[in-house]
Amino acid sequence: MSPKDTRLAGRRALVTGSTGGLGVAIAKALAADGAFVVVSGRDNTRGDAVVADIRSAGGDGSFVAADLGAGGAATNQLADAAIEASGGIDILVNNAATLLMPTPTADVTEQELRDVFGVNVFAPFLLTGVLAPRMVAQGGGTIVNIGSVAGLRGAGGSAVYGANKAAIHSFTQSWADEYGPHGVRVNAVAPGPIGTDRQAEFADHIAPTLSRLPSRRVSTPEEVSAAVVFLASDAAANIHGVVLSVDGGWAAT
């Protein structure tokens, strides 16, 4: 099947954490709209499979292996490799995240805290710090951060993950102010529960809330991806610093 749209034709995107879950759907959606997509993650086999799916659907992309929990050197290597693979990055989607099952604060270990913040907060901060100035130098670009409704409203047992995503939302607003005047738009999508295998592990935890949602269901990865594509496209040309919830009405309950 050929790409259904070409809103992003000629643009080059990097999607972190795109070898599984939501990241795969985002990568495929960007490619379907015409972007060359750099798929990134730790698993070469899964990454190559995502790229193969993109190409079989008429899009194009490449895989770059990266472990975003390995610190700043790994982040810099990813930025350089992504640019080498694509010729430049016009769209950055900071999607990679480590989930921590709901855990009482007293039971979270220091190592868990460091691991989760390393991938969820340090990595997108460092990667944006490398790529946003390069976007400015090439004349512009867009950054879409993947936040969460957990960053909009605190919940018992989710202090660590909620703080991670609240940081992402704060980054979004700060970067919009910092880079927007130089041609780089920055926005975020804040999903509620999504129908992925990883999220299924949280089914019992979120079931009571789902029953109160206006939609009465989780979002699909494709629904969240559509919001990412919109914010990355010229249809959102004057949207800066927005945290767009795709949550089935979670924020309204």
Rank of each mutant, 00 (worst) to 15 (best):
Met1Gln: 08
Pro3Tyr: 02
Gly17Asp: 03
Gly21Thr: 04
Leu30His: 01
Gly34Gln: 08
Gly34Asp: 02
Gly34Lys: 06
Phe36Gly: 01
Arg42Pro: 00
Arg42Ile: 00
Asn44Leu: 12
Asp48Arg: 06
Ser56Pro: 03
Gly61Cys: 06
Gly61Ala: 07
Ser62Tyr: 10
Ala65Phe: 14
Gly72Phe: 13
Gln77Ala: 15
Leu78Pro: 08
Glu84Lys: 12
Gly88Gln: 12
Asn94Asp: 13
Asn94Ser: 14
Thr98Asn: 14
Pro102Ile: 15
Val108Ser: 10
Thr109Met: 06
Glu110Asp: 15
Glu112Lys: 06
Val116Gly: 11
Gly118Glu: 14
Val121Glu: 03
Phe125Gln: 13
Gly129Thr: 06
Gly139Ile: 11
Val144Gln: 04
Leu152Gln: 12
Gly154Cys: 09
Ala163Met: 11
Lys165Thr: 01
Lys165Pro: 07
Ala167Lys: 09
Val186Asn: 10
Val186Lys: 11
Ala200His: 10
His205Ile: 11
Ala207Asp: 08
Pro208Ile: 03
Ser211Phe: 05
Leu213Asn: 05
Pro214Val: 09
Pro214Ile: 08
Glu222Tyr: 00
Ala226Asp: 02
Ala226Ser: 11
Ala226Pro: 04
Val229Pro: 06
Val229Lys: 01
Phe230Val: 00
Leu231Thr: 03
Ala235Trp: 01
Val242Pro: 01
Leu244Lys: 03
Ser245Trp: 00
Asp247Ile: 05
Ala252Pro: 01
